[in-house]
Design a protein around this nucleic acid. Structure first.
Lengths: 335, 335
DNA sequence: TGCACAAATGTAACGCTTTACATTGTTTAT
DNA sequence: ATAAACAATGTAAAGCGTTACATTTGTGCA
């Protein structure tokens, strides 16, 4: 079964391959009778068109690739869900590939773009520098989502990270906190850097001093959250609140707080960023800055598909900012 | 840049396309000098081979598809990580697609197999019945992982679900529990059904009575865990322990217990299945039956690739059982 | 020097589908 | 009745690489 080609179908029903192809693509100008004969033959032979041939001819694959630093993070998967939701009714397939934080693997995966295996790529984070991305965008259809790259004139969908950080810290201040710590990755991550900027601006706006010992820059790795908290709580004057640039770090922090015999949401307020599912499952549940993942996914792929269709010249390479929102849960409290 | 074809490269360097192709595939019998000329031309033109052409000719794509009911479950992603780890050094790419529990979407995704977009598929759960799978396996390279299908003679990698359930319940019994509840999906899920069988066998083995009111079959949805616990705890004689067929259900249960003002690991023991990352992050951390995800992923894809290579006849369609293990954490306790 | 053989390169068919263009058969308008 | 328009179908090229087979070039040995 099903190594049949369109030619076999044509022979089977006594029509030409062109007519069979027309039926397959339901083009105009094919008689009822022929259509039926073709369908019968397809049924009989268990024929399924070979997309390699079709795509080669059409110079398109109707497949969008989503790459991400790691697939073991539900945040990315939420975005993928949004992308899929938009693609499905439009005849596009979505495939994901995680490069496990290896830029080497990322480069390999981008080959799917170069060798025409996919029509476009959405990068949820990347190790490519801006110039490289700009160059790629000239020839191919690419987009960034949730992690922008400074200086990249590439279609991008992100929240306002700086403002998000600002709002998070502001909400902590409004709850009465004065000594607020920061736990983030290092500054080479655009989003972490910007969220820190927001943190600093909020302190400044509310005339709170910046204490260097309260600023913990490390990585996005889970462990870093706990380690930072350990350090913070051993200070002679520990913070009463901590803003983490990701929920994963926040959860790690909450955990460590508990391990230290303290209670998040009572002894120290913890705030994250992203609003991953786990925030609600934690006890205490974790306050955070929500990124509208589904909407971001839908928006970025909508724009990307538009670029793909508008194969002639003028591509949209704007940066779209989507609104974030503050979600207060049990891990924060009024002082 | 890079709409160059192999022909352009051939013209550029004054050699035939055959020679260029040989260089590209580093076949034997091509002179140093020619190789260099080809590489220079490729560099100059920014050429990247079109895989649609190549794959069409070679009748292979070197891509493996992994389908799953939902991508928002870290358990699946752990398996994918194992699959990727095995594939990467062997020149295969891995792509994932979630069908969001819609069999319609699943069917659509399987088209990638029929239309030769991928060389093989690994199904982490499926809505296909056994006969259908058997038929597919005749023509295509498919494998099941973590969720087997009764009666499907298809390459499969799973843990012994029945024994896993047995061992989980046995460990609860050893901790002194006598009234042990069961929270699972309905019996149409093979894994849930088997884990229940194991639960029942353990009760029988240790001469404990089966109480129907302690058996809660519903779905794999998060909410079901909490609802079941609510029901269980309102019984005149509530259980002292509960075995859940998945960690997600267990976590939901732990949550509800907390909401009811009780404490998991103290007032009631909760045990899950899978050992997803979240188990360790919970407070209390959740006891569970570990499935060796990475190993399962590696094994299933190893066998699948072997089948793909052995294109002639004798395919391996055995069912491989990998060992599970019991992990006791804070959510269980000695009574 | 000439022959046998190996290495390097080229030619062209093939894989599968789509589609511009050509052809045949019908219908409509004049 | 005849030309014109149209619907249905067919023919063959094109899309890009791979590879069996053919050809050319080069090497080693008698």
């Amino acid at each position: 079964m099903s190594d049949a080609t369109i030619k076999d179908v044509a022979n089977e029903c006594g029509l030409s391959v062109a007519t069979v192809s027309r039926v397959l693509n339901n083009s105009a100008n094919v008689s009822e009778r022929s259509a039926k004969r073709v369908h019968d033959a397809i049924e009989k032979l268990g024929y399924s068109p070979n997309f390699l041939g079709r795509n080669l001819r059409k110079r398109e694959t109707n497949v969008i690739l989503v790459t991400m630093p790691t697939s073991e993070h539900s945040f990315y998967m939420k975005i993928v869900a949004g992308i899929q939701q938009y693609c499905q009714p439009r005849g596009y397939d979505v495939i994901c590939a995680s490069y496990n934080n290896s830029s080497e693997v990322e480069v390999r995966q981008m080959n799917m773009l170069f060798n025409r295996t996919v029509d476009g790529v959405i990068l949820l984070g990347t190790s490519y520098p801006a110039e490289k991305l700009n160059k790629l965008a000239e020839t191919y259809n690419i987009a960034l989502c949730c992690e922008g790259v400074e200086g990249a004139d590439v279609l991008t969908v992100v929240v306002d990270d700086e403002q998000g950080g600002y709002d998070a810290v502001k909400s902590l201040i409004k709850l009465g906190h004065r000594r607020i710590a920061f736990i983030g990755a290092n500054d080479s991550s655009a989003s972490s850097f910007k969220r820190k900027e927001g943190y600093l601006r909020a302190l400044k706006d509310f005339q709170l001093p910046v204490y260097d010992e309260l600023i913990c820059c490390g990585t996005f790795e889970y462990e870093h959250g706990g380690e930072a908290v350990e350090k913070l709580m051993s200070l002679k004057e520990p913070p009463t609140a901590v803003f983490c640039v990701s929920d994963l770090l926040a959860i790690s922090a909450v955990h460590k707080v508990h391990e230290l015999g303290l209670e998040a949401g009572k002894d120290i307020a913890v705030m994250g960023f992203d609003n991953i599912t786990m925030c609600e499952m934690m006890m205490p549940s974790v306050s955070t800055v929500e990124q509208p993942c589904k909407e971001m996914g839908e928006l970025v792929v909508k724009k990307l598909l538009a670029n793909i269709s508008a194969s002639g010249g003028e591509k949209d390479n704007k940066c779209y900012i989507v609104p974030h929102s503050i979600i207060l849960r049990e891990s924060t409290f009024r002082i």
